[in-house]
């Protein structure tokens, strides 16, 4: 009934064209758990890049540390797996050194909003042309299920055994508040919408962030009795509302809902572009004076 390709060497194409083109099949399948949402989101990124026709050679994937951050190693681009929380700061250097590169940061909720929160808000404020894709699973996956800045109040983690007392961050909202010129929210379930949001984020000139609700069945799911990976995706399907729908809903009605779509987009000069303009101005002034 099925094509069981067994342990086929990487030369044999036992995967879709998209995966063959944009992933490093010799490293697949990923170390991620069965049903982990990260694989779905990583595919969304590849699809967005395919839709835009970006060159792999001039695209850079930067990640920090976490389950999510392992994405960099699987993707066939210039990839750099950096230190916990610092992906945006590394990416800033890469973009500044060579603005013609398309720089995409792949990160987790802990990576970007706890240890890396400072870099997030400042890159947003600076409006440097990075695209940040957050695989937001509401927990620290890699270290085994501790609560993260996006764990809802009352939810459980290994370090929140009696329920989380903290209030949680809305990462897209946080970035928007800090000056991000493009902020969107997607989910693992909403593949096509999320792909489009990532695609538009990459196209956007300036700092863009796409906060994608992922699923971590292993820790978040188990600790919070959310069921299987399938159950968690069904929850996303059944509890999401679009930005337009949300606009017509009351705060009360929006409780516990996932608002999906483009939250904010403005045009504002991109940082490396502005810097290049500055250099040009200095050169011109010098020529005039000579």
């Amino acid at each position: 009934m099925t094509v069981d390709t067994g342990d086929v060497s990487v030369k044999t194409k036992n995967m879709s064209n998209l995966i063959y083109k944009y992933m490093r099949p010799e490293h697949l399948p990923q170390i991620w758990c069965p049903g982990c949402g990260n694989g779905i989101i990583m595919r969304d990124i590849a699809q967005a890049i395919e839709n835009l026709g970006l060159s792999r050679n001039s695209t850079v994937i930067v990640s920090g540390i976490g389950c999510s951050a392992r994405a960099a190693g699987y993707m066939d681009f210039n990839t750099i797996h950096t230190t916990h929380g610092r992906a945006i700061a590394f990416a800033t250097g890469i973009k500044l050194a060579n603005p013609s590169l398309e720089v995409i940061v792949v990160t987790g909720d802990g990576d970007i909003s706890a240890i890396g929160g400072n870099h997030l808000i400042h890159a947003a404020r600076r409006n440097i042309g990075l695209t940040v894709v957050v695989m937001n699973n509401n927990i620290y996956g890699m270290t085994g299920g501790q609560y993260s800045p996006t764990t809802p109040t009352g939810a459980f983690g290994t370090t929140a055994p009696y329920g989380n007392l903290d209030r949680s961050f809305d990462i897209a909202g946080l970035a928007y508040g800090a000056g991000a010129s493009y902020a969107a929210r997607g989910s693992a379930y909403h593949v096509q919408q999320t792909t489009t949001l990532i695609q538009e984020g990459i196209k956007h000139r300036g700092f863009s962030i796409i906060d994608v609700a992922s699923i971590c069945p292993t820790y978040y799911g188990r600790k919070n009795k959310k069921g299987s990976a399938v159950d968690m995706l069904k929850w996303q399907r059944d509890n999401s509302v679009t930005v337009d729908q949300a606009a017509k809903m009351s705060q009360e009605e929006l409780k516990g809902k996932l608002v999906i779509g483009l939250l904010h987009q403005v045009n504002y000069p991109e940082f490396t572009y502005a810097y290049d303009q500055l250099i040009r101005r200095l050169f011109e002034e010098r020529e005039e004076n000579e």
Partner: peptide, 11 residues
């Protein structure tokens, strides 16, 4: 179907 990559998550 590439069963060698399948982890049986059922999605």
């Amino acid at each position: 179907i590439n069963q060698s990559w399948c982890k049986g998550c059922g999605i």
